[in-house]
Simulated assay, not measured.
Amino acid sequence: MAIDSLVPTLDGWKSAREVAVGDTLFDESGRATRVRRSVSLLDVSRRYRVEFRDGTAVIADASQLWPLREFAGAYEDRLASTAEVLSLGVTYERRLTSGKTKASRGGVARWRTLATPALNLDECPLPLSPYLLGYWLGDGDSDGPRITVHEEDLPSLEREVEVEGARIISRQRTHGKTFRVRFDLGSYGTGIWALRDLGVLANKHIPSVVFRASRSQRLHVLQGLVDSDGYIEKRTNRVELCFTAERLAKDAVELIRTLGLYPRMSSVAAVLNGQRVGTRHRINFTAYSDDAVSRLARKLERLGSKGSIAPYSRVRTLVGVTLVDRGPAFEIEVDSPNGLYLVGEGMIPVGPFSSGSD
């Protein structure tokens, strides 16, 4: 990989050049794996930008190995080098057919990655319930422990606040059918103290500690975001979040990826009365009932089951391999059973240790 490629580690994101022997990365199952060897390559003559459909990319040398699923008339799991992917191309021109095996389009995607796994991590102490944190990030006042909620969802929020060991100390109808509620943590401290301790007071974002919290803690933050500020479309299993704060939107994308889901973000102008007033960042991803990305019954009931086969919504299609400038690269070897580890913003499984560089 290029030495500035991002690698998710137990301590957060690092560039490949910063990864050292003994550091903890993640394997293709999301489990922790240690680096046992790293090699710096000062000048690689052929480096390639490997691009995926969700807009993420990794710069790698010709010999980097990728565990992929190849379609060449039928699907087959295999390890392929960057050079092989470039040689075979990113599309497969299949023979067109009709009838029960109809194939009306010739050029189809040849390569798909392994699914990005949910990171498997231990629970960590947080000063505020993860669910309440997510709900507040979605519909809370940035300067204090207050949340705006529609009257239809108020009973549900009150129940969840109680379940989380907190309490609502005031509720006030604002206008129409919305309420503003103020919460406190009872014997655990004040709500404003917890928000300040997390560094989110007047600075809405997902704290870095959350990205390396347990799977259930990360899921609870996402549930709060979806329940307060999300929409689930019937029959399609499509979940949408929308934010005006770019940092919070990017944080939500990263959070969703750590849960093994596949988010895509687009940014469009926010218009009010014909005038642009900012930018809306829309995040879409596919979820199923088993993913439990919501606690609200009216939202959760819209999600169907995914069945026994992992859907393509959990993998990334490889859409391009292009030559880039020569430069330094870095090889990493880990102690996971298959020698695989995650790399890039999309946390794509790569490896094992390649046999050499060009």
Rank of each mutant, 00 (worst) to 15 (best):
C242W: 05
G191V: 07
L157F: 14
L222E: 12
V161Y: 02
G186S: 07
V221N: 08
R247W: 00
E233T: 11
Q223H: 06
A252N: 03
E158P: 01
I232W: 02
R159V: 13
R196V: 00
P207W: 04
R159D: 15
R180Y: 00
K250G: 06
I206C: 10
F243Q: 04
G224H: 10
G189L: 08
I206L: 08
K177S: 14
G230F: 12
L185T: 12
S228V: 08
R212M: 08
G140N: 00
R180V: 14
G186F: 06
H175W: 11
T244M: 05
V149M: 00
A249I: 01
Q223E: 11
T178S: 11
F243R: 02
D153M: 03
F179P: 00
E151D: 11
S228D: 09
G189E: 11
V181A: 04
D197P: 00
R173W: 02
E151P: 00
E233L: 12
P155Y: 05
I232P: 09
R173T: 11
A194R: 07
G176M: 05
W193F: 12
R238F: 04
N237R: 08
D251V: 01
S142I: 04
E152V: 14
D229Y: 03
R212K: 14
G199T: 06
R235M: 05
E164D: 15
N237A: 08
L185K: 10
V209N: 06
R238L: 13
R182V: 12
G191D: 05
V239F: 07
L248H: 02
L241M: 09
V210F: 13
I168V: 15
D184Q: 11
T244Q: 05
C242H: 01
G176Y: 07
G230P: 09
